[in-house]
């Protein structure tokens, strides 16, 4: 990872930052293995450059754009966000990135576009979790957002964290960050962005539709069918066994003021 700085912004939560060591060694990135330590241990061979993202679908200006062009065309910003995993743990991460809406403006979505679909790279030679006998996911990993969710100012494409470009295990060179949704919506190592009219498929929703919905908004009142979402454990609060108490999970992960309006009139127990 190379040094990277962002422009200071007001988008920062006052919570204590999760130590960088934990942010970069405790990851879910099944492309590198299903254990939390696998991504950091198995991503050494992954090459995040050269990299091109293909943006198409219902847009006026479809294009292929290199990561260098992305870095130079958009103003990188500092964003300190809470990250709540669906597994009931959370972190506070200083991201560097830019609003997804800026990229969408560049490609000019057509009036018929309602959703944004994302796709992760497939490279079995560099991503050991994508090869082998037992595969838990059909690659590529895919996910999506409603267009208005994608245009919300909180939604960013991250290119770095903690003052440097993204480490491979965190989704280099470009990943989505949607802080009011469970972490698995933050699709990593993006190669394709497609504007669509229909709701795009999402990997976890396909795997277990009754457990993971399309929206996946953080919601302490809607439990995962197998475990509670009312509380979470903040990673890095305590290195030892004692003192790492649970904290209450907030609706929309604490970002309700900015995003609750997106879901006005929707039954969030049904559209989970």
């Amino acid at each position: 990872a190379a040094p990277l700085t962002g422009k200071p912004t007001a988008y920062k939560v006052p919570d204590k930052l999760t130590p960088k060591k934990d942010v970069t060694t405790y990851n879910n990135f099944y492309e590198f293995g299903t254990d939390k330590s696998d991504p950091a241990n198995n991503s050494g061979k992954f090459k995040p450059t050269p990299w091109t993202v293909e943006i198409g679908g219902l847009v006026a200006k479809p294009q292929k754009i290199s990561i260098e062009d992305i870095m130079s065309s958009f103003t990188m910003e500092d964003r300190i966000y809470r990250m709540r995993c669906v597994e009931a743990w959370s972190m506070v991460i200083p991201w560097i990135g830019f609003p997804l809406s800026a990229l969408l403006d560049k490609v000019e979505p057509l009036g018929s576009a309602k959703y944004v679909a994302f796709e992760t790279v497939v490279r079995p030679d560099e991503m050991p979790g994508q090869s082998g006998f037992f595969q838990s996911i059909n690659w590529p990993y895919v996910d999506g957002l409603r267009l208005d969710e994608a245009r919300n100012p909180l939604t960013i494409l991250a290119t770095g964290l903690y003052g440097e470009t993204l480490p491979n295990q965190n989704g280099a060179p470009l990943r989505l960050v949607v802080p009011w949704k469970y972490g698995f919506k933050g699709i990593k190592s993006i190669v394709k962005i497609t504007l669509t009219e229909k709701q795009p498929p999402c990997t976890w929703n396909i795997l277990a539709p009754n457990e993971y919905g399309f929206y996946a908004n953080v919601n302490p009142k809607v439990d995962h069918p197998r475990w509670s979402q009312a509380t979470e454990r903040r990673i890095g609060e305590s290195a030892g066994l004692f003192g790492g108490a649970r904290i209450d999970t907030l609706p929309f992960n604490g970002y309700g003021e900015q995003v609750a309006g997106l879901y006005k009139g929707m039954d969030l127990t049904k559209f989970y």
Binding site: K21, D22, T25, Y26, K36, S37, W89, R233, I235, G236, S238, A239, G240, L241, G244
Partner: peptide, 18 residues
């Protein structure tokens, strides 16, 4: 595992790991 847990050797989420 208890020894590791006391001295911070169980990773980012020591309680869960233990």
């Amino acid at each position: 595992a208890f020894y590791l847990g006391i001295f911070g050797g169980l990773g980012a989420d020591p309680v869960r790991e233990f």
